[in-house]
Design a protein around this nucleic acid. Structure first.
Length: 322
DNA sequence: ACCCAGGATGTAA
DNA sequence: TTACATCATGGG
């Protein structure tokens, strides 16, 4: 095992918000706790700084990278990590997957002046986008259809435990994400047993497509945003919304604004003039409204703010009423 | 019991 | 193109 620390990037890093807010389902808490069950409202503006009472082994998150285990936590103003020997360059992996090069102050400055947006940025400093590997992200968001964040964690965790390889580090065992070949060979009934529901055949069929190589992330690579979104819908179980999630949370298309139930609710409540009927047109309108090239980053803050505080939490309730 | 959750698909107009 | 019905599953 190797370990080390990195300085926190400009704007800080809220690991819990970044890893449990529904952008990625590839990390789990080492010291127990159900994924995504954080009582956000009570999570306090600050961790209280009562370092002496906190156990020294708390706060770790675990994932896998190139077949090995990788743990990370924020401690004393540093990003601590430890990794199995098989992980080639842990610090590079963390830098890429947690978007540590992003200057959050610059992101906030580039965001449009708006009461909801301002409140969202103020509510969760240190929240970052992620850039997770394509295949696990694709499967995660196929599973996300009509599901709460907590249950998406449960489904992805079940997939890893059932089909992945166990990897142990510092006494904690996690599992690698199953390959496309693994899931292509899975029985649909078996996947349903993992509580994937009607998403089971979607995952299996998409796995077959990827395993056969007839469609890959390269289909979207290099394409302009809207063409890339269209290309990803070639996978089974991937519509425009899921495609937007994959583009934003894996392929670094930061203009992508996934129109999920929360963002649609935000549009209805705070940006009603952005509702244009179709996904494509509403997408363009809210994208322009939230800052164009960085609209997806702004979306991440607004999504997390509204989902954890409630739709009416914003300072300006709504222009509503006929 | 009903409604909702980071929706997608197949079918009919 | 748009409009529905249908699809699982668990929590409020």
């Amino acid at each position: 095992m190797r370990s080390g620390t990195l300085p926190l990037p400009p704007g800080g890093l809220d690991l819990t918000a970044t890893l449990e807010s529904g952008q990625t389902f590839l990390w789990e808490r080492v010291d127990g706790g159900t994924y995504g069950d954080v009582a956000w409202a009570e999570r306090a503006p600050a961790p209280a700084d009562d370092a002496p009472t906190a156990a020294p082994e708390t706060g770790w998150y675990a994932t896998t990278a190139s077949g090995g285990a990788l743990h990370a936590r924020v401690r004393d103003g540093r990003l601590e990590w430890r990794a199995s020997d098989g992980v080639a360059d842990p610090e590079a992996v963390l830098g890429r997957r947690l978007c540590l090069d992003d200057d959050l102050g610059a992101v906030a400055d580039a965001a449009p002046a708006d009461p909801v947006v301002d409140a969202a940025f103020a509510a969760t400093p240190g929240l970052r986008l992620v850039a997770e590997p394509f295949w696990p992200t694709l499967v995660s968001f196929i599973c996300s259809a009509q599901m709460r964040v907590e249950r998406i964690f449960a489904m992805c965790g079940a997939l890893r435990e059932r089909y992945g390889e166990p990897v142990t580090l510092a006494g904690h065992t996690t599992h690698t994400f199953p390959s496309s070949a693994d899931l292509a060979a899975a029985e649909e009934a078996d996947l349903r047993g993992l509580k994937l529901g009607y998403r089971a055949p979607y995952v299996r069929d998409t796995a077959a497509i990827v395993a056969d190589g007839e469609q890959s992330r390269d289909a979207a690579d290099g394409l302009p945003y809207e063409a890339a979104r269209e290309a990803l819908t070639a996978f089974v179980g991937v519509g425009e919304k899921v495609a937007d999630c994959v583009l934003l949370f894996s392929l670094c298309y930061r203009e992508a604004v996934p129109l999920d139930t929360w963002i649609r609710r935000a549009i209805a409540t705070y940006f009603p003039n952005c509702e244009r009927g179709s996904y494509a047109e509403t997408s363009r309108a809210i994208r322009d409204r939230l800052g164009g090239e960085l609209a997806g980053y702004v979306q991440t803050y607004v999504f997390h703010y509204l989902r954890t505080r409630g739709i009416d939490a914003a300072p300006v309730p709504a222009p509503a009423e006929e």
